[in-house]
Nucleic acid binder design. Sequence first.
DNA 1: AAGACGAAAGTGGTTGA
DNA 2: TCAACAACTTTCGTCTT
Length: 309
Amino acid sequence: MEEKTLKVRVDCCPECGSENLIRDYESREYVCGDCGLVIKEMEYDRGPEWRAFDLEQKEKRSRGGEPLTYTLHDKGLTTSISPFDRDTYRKPLKPEQKETFYRLRKWQKRMRLLDSSERSLAFALAQVNQISNNLLLPKYVVEYASQILTKLVKERLLRGRDIKSAAAAGVYLACRDLEIPRTLDEVAEAANEEKRRVGSTYRFIVQEGFKELDYKPPVPSHSMYVSKTGVSGLTEGITHKILRAAKEVKLTLGRSPIGTVTAAAYIASVLTGERLTQRDLAEKMRCTEVTIRNRYKELVERLMFIVEL
DNA sequence: AAGACGAAAGTGGTTGA
DNA sequence: TCAACAACTTTCGTCTT
């Protein structure tokens, strides 16, 4: 069995032993809710489904320095060879040099023949880069999304499909899998694509592209979105507490997680005096003030007396 | 004046016949 | 496939700080 990278899941604070850890999904850090210690999450575990990639990568690496990045299809290795058997001084080449160049050209041609999938891969990766830039995604996410697209193109699963929406779907999948709080809406917008198309391509990728792996990306959790609200320190902790309580009384079912999180953050900010306005939160979280109000009314009615602060 | 509140009407997605 | 439905949005007038 191939040993996989271990994700060091932190479940309690090494300093004070508290289990009240707050996870920041953007920076992959935990903050202890009691003593404030910052704990960095270690290596990301891509799970057994990605092992093929790792093996391949390893193999190639040991052979000849394959670029370690998937974000460029050829890492700028393309070269053009002059069709004339002359050197830079336009003098004819020596016979053995001629032979060398003949071989080089032959290989160059062979490479070109492979180009149709290379081309779409290059295009796909360029798209991934652009979309990720628009979304301000960390590098490891771009890398991961690039791996996904590379796999899809290499297995010819994207033939006849719109590469651009596939790139968007790949970025979205990477975000989902790495628990980066980005909505389908945001990704579609960053890709300048219709949400519907990205969504259906996403479903296709998950179903068809990873069929053999019985793979499902994690469902976005409430706490994922908390770091996005921009509330700080104490407020963040209270937001998490409110959300936990909300879940207990089933106030989260059927509601959009964004609305619930935003409302919880609003309440928390009022409680701590940070006092974020509904408008700012609504804008940042891409929901409306009305939704915040509806959620927060429910929350206050049902559980403010339950939450101990 | 800015923020919060809520009513009313409209929209897109889910569910069940 | 269609209708019913709840959540959510948009818009706008009113109240509060």
